[in-house]
Computed example of a mutant assay.
Amino acid sequence: MTDDTTTAEAPEVDQDEVERDEADIAGDYIEGLLDICDLDGDIEIEERGGRVYLSVTDDGEGLRVLSKPETVTALQELTRIAVQAETGEFSRLILDVGGSRDARASELQRLVDTAIERVEGGSSSAALPPMSSYERKLVHDLVAEKGFHSESEGEGRDRHTVVTR
């Protein structure tokens, strides 16, 4: 006796296709925002470690108003929401406007260097100001590169990194 019933299989999802979709949706969203603001900008999209990175650059000073850290964070969250609304999937994309991420990475490096100096100078620990999870991850990496230890402490907006030996 043969069983003629068939089982419907869910279609396989190609992760590269999902990432392209995420990148395309995010790029279109940012392009629309730039149009609304009447700003020119070049959008570069790349994938690093399973995460989509969008960089918006221009030749002049037009993006200066959008490149403030709080503004970039807000735009990133809006872009993530737009991607999630379209794909139904949580987005972990990272947005950089006018080189703001590089500037913030340099600032974080200075904060880490100062914290390590305090620990080397005899403090048992050095707490950094509250920051986003992305920034805390960068700090943890910078601290580890210097041979020190760090942990995140606190909740919500007060979550910060503490550096120890």
Rank of each mutant, 00 (worst) to 15 (best):
T161K: 03
G32I: 04
P69G: 06
L142A: 11
A144Q: 14
S106N: 05
V65E: 11
R64N: 10
R159N: 13
V18S: 03
S132T: 15
E135A: 10
A85H: 02
V143I: 10
V143W: 01
G154P: 12
V65C: 03
S150F: 05
A74I: 10
V52S: 08
L93K: 06
R51S: 05
R20F: 01
T7G: 03
V52C: 04
A82G: 02
D35N: 12
E44M: 04
T164L: 06
A85W: 02
A115N: 04
V56F: 02
G88Q: 10
I36H: 05
Y134M: 12
S125L: 05
I36A: 02
A82Q: 07
D3L: 11
D3V: 13
A103V: 13
S125E: 15
M131E: 07
A144P: 06
E17C: 00
I43Q: 03
E31V: 00
L128G: 10
P130R: 09
E17W: 00
L78P: 00
D21R: 13
E135T: 05
E44N: 12
Q15A: 08
D14E: 12
S123F: 10
V83M: 02
G98I: 06
E12M: 07
K137L: 08
L54D: 05
T5S: 13
G99D: 08
V163H: 11
R64T: 14
S106M: 03
D14C: 04
K137R: 15
S133F: 07
P129E: 15
T57A: 15
G156N: 13
S125W: 06
R80W: 07
A115S: 08
V83D: 00
S132N: 14
D3N: 15
A103F: 02
M131H: 09
G154K: 13
T5W: 10
T57P: 02
G121M: 12
S125M: 07
L111K: 07
L54R: 07
T7N: 12
R165P: 15
L95D: 06
T79F: 00
A105T: 13
L108G: 03
H160S: 14
